[in-house]
């Protein structure tokens, strides 16, 4: 993993604080989700984003209105980062009617048409052609929107990813392929699963430019995101960002994580944590005091606690919801 942090001194509080708040919201939200899972309020599979917050927060900082995003099942962070309501996300996790999918999608399958969030996809790699298809729709309609298509180092070994690279390059689709390389495809390290050390270099075979980015540095992610967005928005076709990141928690809630040592995780947390990084910048740059940050912590905690309350109180979907939303009706 790249370790060099961008230490720009000319950054203002307005640059840093929104990134900090958003990353912190994701982390606290995920911690709460983990807690509710332990209490049996959240069922099934639940994949936490803790550790990877800088990836989606850095990229959302360069998104414009109408830009689209699609990701895998590790999706809670992406939803919060694109502005979806914490209450609706948490209530979906608890399978309640107040959730984004009325409780019918769950952790892995959530959507927001309003925020142009196209899932939440449970099949590893399947969101990649879908993301290119969303980009296809924008190009077809003649607008300048781009689609952020997130997938992991594990999905990067699915054949459909390369089928998509080929067509995206062939047709100059405005899609940013964001490889969130957290180094483990469930329990299999990149070293054991992937022939290339730098996954983004695979784009070269298709003529797709790309770069590796330090995913523990939200400012580096944002800067790389801006390069990618400029490339795509100006009609030059797809771009690959391989963002080197790390997940602190197991693959899912039921993962004993025997494939790596506790020390390895601890070392990343202590030395490279993305939230701590921005916190340090805020303090050393004298943008705020410890007390100011405590206040932010408190506000975030309130949002998260409120979402948990909402998710507990929201009623289960009515039994007849079983039979709705299977087919759309023809509009008159």
């Amino acid at each position: 993993m790249a370790t060099k942090k961008t230490r720009k001194t000319n950054l203002s509080k307005d640059d840093l604080m929104p990134l900090y708040r958003r990353m912190l919201l994701i982390r606290r939200f995920e911690e709460k989700a983990g807690q509710l899972y332990g209490m049996g309020l959240i069922g099934g599979f639940c994949h936490l984003y803790i550790g990877q917050e800088a990836v989606v927060v850095g990229l959302e900082a360069v998104a414009e209105e109408g830009d689209k995003r699609v990701t895998s099942y590790r999706d809670h962070g992406h939803m919060l980062a694109c502005g979806m309501d914490a209450n609706g996300v948490m209530a979906e996790l608890t399978g309640r009617s107040g959730g984004y999918s009325k409780g019918k999608g769950g952790s892995m399958h959530m959507f927001s048409k309003e925020k142009h969030f196209y899932g939440g996809h449970g099949i590893v790699g399947a969101q990649v052609p879908i993301g290119a298809g969303l980009a296809f729709s924008d190009k077809y309609k003649g607008n300048t929107n781009v689609t952020f298509t997130y997938f992991g180092d594990g999905a990067a070994n699915q054949g459909q990813v390369y089928e998509t690279f080929n067509m995206a390059a062939l047709w100059d689709l405005p899609v940013i392929f964001v490889i969130e390389n957290n180094q483990y495809a469930m329990g299999t390290s990149q070293q054991r699963s992937t022939s290339s050390a730098e996954i983004y270099e695979r784009g070269q075979a298709f003529g797709i430019p790309g770069e590796a980015v330090d995913g523990m540095d939200v400012l580096a992610v944002k800067a790389a995101g801006q390069t990618a967005v400029n490339h795509c928005r100006s009609g030059q076709g797809p771009y690959i960002l391989e963002i080197k990141t790390y997940r602190y928690r197991g693959h899912s809630m039921s993962d004993p994580a025997k494939y790596r040592t506790r020390e390895e995780v601890q070392k990343v947390r202590e030395e490279k944590d993305a939230i701590q990084h921005v916190r340090d910048l805020l303090l050393t740059g004298k943008h705020c005091t410890e007390d100011d940050l405590k206040l932010v912590d408190k506000e975030i905690k309130a949002i998260v606690n409120q979402s948990a309350e909402f998710a507990k109180e929201s009623p289960e979907p009515a039994p007849d919801e079983l039979w709705t939303d299977i087919y759309a009706n023809l509009e008159a």
């Binding site: 196209y118 052609p129 879908i130 969303l134 296809f136 729709s137 054949g159 089928e163 067509m167 062939l170």
Partner: peptide, 18 residues
């Protein structure tokens, strides 16, 4: 190209996109 899995996914994405 001869790539059913890929172009089907792209078409489904385009359908989501309107």
């Amino acid at each position: 190209p001869i790539t059913e899995h890929g172009f089907t996914g792209i078409a489904v994405g385009a359908a989501f996109g309107g």
